[in-house]
Write a protein that binds this DNA or RNA. Structure first.
Lengths: 207, 207
DNA sequence: AAAAAACTTGACCGTATGGTCAGATATGTA
DNA sequence: TACATATCTGACCATACGGTCAAGTTTTTT
């Protein structure tokens, strides 16, 4: 059997099917949440039978956990990229742009992540308290150094990150609300959000 | 029978029980989402029997809709309060403080609303496109007038509101993430968020 | 080509859940 | 008090869903 393989080499079909299933699962989970999704929905979307899905994953939760784990990697990538040696405000603006691009290009991932956190992070709490916390702590030090050197204004680094996360992800997670309020579909919210956010954070950070 | 009463006067017990049920439902729905909640959970929390719940509400969805409708009223109150005649930056800061207080004092409402929007607003889309959109349009005009008069800097009013919503609600909706990253439980995130956000938006809006 | 391994599925099971209903109990009213 | 109305509930039903399994099909290996 293929399931619960730990550090075994995968066959061609295993890799293919697993990818198809995870892609379908991302689709379904991000639309209906964990409890609102059924294995049948995922199966239909993946064009596989339900038992076939359960041949590759032990159960529904295992699919969810795997999707989340994959997602977290790419989710944290932009944060990793912040570099102490470059111009502070350029780096922050670059970070904002990357986060906003991710919200635009990967709304399913953003919504799924939001859903997970809203429910109290039942599957990723350890990662939040471990990897994420450590990574943030590291970047917080960079911000503090910039402040101390007078390169940027004095700001609470944690809240700076929270604000960037909140504002960028808002356009993916609350997409329906944003579009309802704007409604004049002449402009893409993302296009106008970029300059707005960069201006806002630049203004605050300029000493 | 008591259910589906349209414009009939309610008995004392009807009012009491309805309130108890809605309170319990808010608890459960905000914790588990619509699909993750069961009528039995609500019944247990309300200390009523399941059929008794269904005596007052036609079905699970009716409870959800009612909870959301009640919630929306209080949710939009702070926005209503923005007054053109007062000092612009004071008004915005007051709005931020009110939104942040709501996130702190009514996290269940915030999470439930977030959940609803994340799922595509199946129950409140008309309100978003109607009442909310109109209210925002009205307040956008105030911001634009302030800008034109040189009282505040030129900013996109819509994105200004989006940013305020995103940053304030973030502390309720992503509470678990915020606390995971901060972890030093010496400070309450809400206490430090207030000054941070007011500074950020004031700085941006000062001409 | 044949055996072995990997993959797939129709049919099935147990449980959870939304919802119903007939009848019991409490409450209000004449 | 007696009647009517409102409130409440145990028992029940139908469906949906997570998950299993034995048997079949395809792919890989020898």
């Amino acid at each position: 059997m293929a399931r619960s393989q730990t550090t075994k080499k995968l066959t061609r079909i295993q890799r293919q099917r697993t990818d198809i299933i995870l892609e379908a699962a991302l689709d379904v989970f991000s639309d209906f949440g964990f409890r609102g999704s059924t294995i049948d929905m995922i199966a239909k979307r993946a064009k596989l039978s339900k038992p076939n899905i359960l041949y590759y994953f032990d159960n529904k939760e295992a699919i969810h956990v795997t999707v989340l784990a994959k997602l977290l990697e790419t989710w944290l990538a932009p944060l990793h990229a912040i570099n102490e040696d470059n111009d502070p405000i350029d780096e922050i603006c670059k970070y904002i742009e990357q986060k906003l691009n991710m919200a635009r290009d990967f709304p399913r991932e953003s919504k799924l992540f939001a859903n997970e956190i809203l429910q109290g992070a039942p599957h990723v709490l350890p990662e939040l308290q471990g990897a994420l916390k450590d990574l943030v702590a590291q970047k917080v030090k960079i911000i503090e150094a910039w402040s101390k050197d007078g390169k940027i204004a004095q700001v609470d680094p944690h809240h700076l990150f929270f604000s960037i996360w909140a504002t960028t992800q808002h356009y993916a997670d609350f997409d329906i609300q944003v579009r309802s309020v704007l409604d004049d579909n002449t402009k893409d919210p993302f296009d106008t959000a970029g300059p707005f956010l960069k201006t806002m954070f630049s203004t605050m950070l300029t000493p």
